[in-house]
Amino acid sequence: MQRVNMIMAESPGLITICLLGYLLSAECTVFLDHENANKILNRPKRYNSGKLEEFVQGNLERECMEEKCSFEEAREVFENTERTTEFWKQYVDGDQCESNPCLNGGSCKDDINSYECWCPFGFEGKNCELDVTCNIKNGRCEQFCKNSADNKVVCSCTEGYRLAENQKSCEPAVPFPCGRVSVSQTSKLTRAETVFPDVDYVNSTEAETILDNITQSTQSFNDFTRVVGGEDAKPGQFPWQVVLNGKVDAFCGGSIVNEKWIVTAAHCVETGVKITVVAGEHNIEETEHTEQKRNVIRIIPHHNYNAAINKYNHDIALLELDEPLVLNSYVTPICIADKEYTNIFLKFGSGYVSGWGRVFHKGRSALVLQYLRVPLVDRATCLRSTKFTIYNNMFCAGFHEGGRDSCQGDSGGPHVTEVEGTSFLTGIISWGEECAMKGKYGIYTKVSRYVNWIKEKTKLT
């Protein structure tokens, strides 16, 4: 034993070699072989497995989906700052455009905790909710729209109204504003409101030439003092309507412009014939205590009207009353817009006519005020429907199939267009061939041609 100890002390290297040989010859039971080890760690190889990531292109799944990435790591994937920024906006807080917040056709661009709407022409605001041009839906104005110097929408209202708090709607500024039905039992019968379409306001006024200088022999019209197929109006439903009495009662109609003036057809009036105007009328054979009678003290036909040349060209006249009318729910003026808007309103496509005229061709006159909704007829169809001249200051309205029309005794009465609950004068009943005849239409004086003249002559002093 002493000898062994001496050998170990003198030859430590020998001992180490012996131990190493023993270990190498022993069977290893701690580690699995290569094949079995792979069965336990069965993990798919990654895209760049075996390579240094710093030297390969980034992978979106590896960089940002398996674990949260930084902007720089995302930049490695896209290799483009702009594309990385677009991805980053949604990656950080989701897609803010998912709810489609942009209105009126706006395009949404996502941002971090926010979004941006790219608005089409005519709109602005956070969600493109603000109209900035009158060309689109009248700028959301209830009545009139004008573009300011910086191309912003400025709404306005006709006389007797003021802008509401929203700067879009119009509200009454006087007790009985024009064009409004205020009798409670008839307010439910107000005709369907007309909503502004998209309009090209630059070209809204037709490029028409008034044929002022045409000389033409007097034409022989049949029954051209021209509501057939209409309905009984309720008291106060058309408070701007008046009836004219002269040699015979209810020979023509008219509309209240203001307390002192009536507008009617020029062919209705004769110099030297006494005319009485009755406002607030409903049943011409009954006294309903809503009527107001006034005498006409002055007749002003349009300066281009000449019955000797043509009885229905420039067929418009103004009547001055001896005493002002007292405005109330049964006696209310009709609204008159400017030339541009009167023309736009007419193009809405349908209007209402009213009167006490004959209820059928050569038949009896109506006792109760009649009204009828009539569609506008395109000019080409209008011209083809008659052998008589249709001037540019006239328009056609009615039904091709016949059966409904204005008729004798309705002449001078109103053709009105309702705009968001307020009625505007767009025409004056003038003439036609018979009444409600198939293929024939009622012919009306186009008020847009005469609004400046009306307003100039009827100013209240």
Rank of each mutant, 00 (worst) to 15 (best):
G13I: 15
V374L: 04
T158G: 04
K260N: 07
I390T: 09
I309L: 09
Q96V: 09
E82A: 13
E270H: 06
Q90M: 09
R384L: 09
R140I: 06
V257Q: 00
E259L: 04
N393H: 12
T133Y: 07
K247S: 12
F55G: 08
M8E: 08
G357D: 10
V368I: 14
I275C: 03
R162G: 05
S148G: 07
R373S: 10
Q237C: 04
R449E: 11
V326G: 05
N5C: 14
F424P: 01
S354Q: 10
N304G: 08
P301Q: 11
M8G: 12
Q90F: 08
T209M: 14
Y22Q: 09
L52R: 12
N245S: 10
L211R: 05
F71T: 15
L372T: 13
L367H: 14
D95S: 12
E281R: 10
K438Q: 15
S184H: 11
D249P: 07
N213V: 10
W240G: 00
E79Y: 10
L20K: 02
I443W: 10
T461P: 14
I136G: 06
V4Y: 06
S107N: 08
K311F: 05
I136Y: 15
I17N: 02
A164L: 06
E286K: 11
D93T: 15
E72I: 15
N80W: 04
D378E: 11
N48C: 04
H303R: 07
N80H: 09
R180C: 03
K311I: 07
H34G: 07
I443C: 03
F144S: 01
I136F: 13
F424C: 01
N104S: 03
V92M: 13
F196C: 06
S11G: 14
E340W: 11
S220D: 14
E420A: 15
K459G: 09
L32I: 12
S156Q: 09
I214D: 07
R46E: 15
H303F: 08
R379N: 04
E259H: 06
L19A: 06
C69S: 05
S204D: 10
G125V: 00
C18W: 07
F121E: 04
D111P: 01
A26D: 02
R46H: 05
E53G: 09
S220P: 13
C155N: 00
D111I: 11
C117P: 00
E116K: 02
P101T: 04
S148H: 09
N245K: 13
D338R: 04
L325E: 00
N135K: 15
C69T: 04
S350E: 15
R358W: 06
E79G: 15
C134R: 03
P333N: 04
H303T: 09
H361S: 13
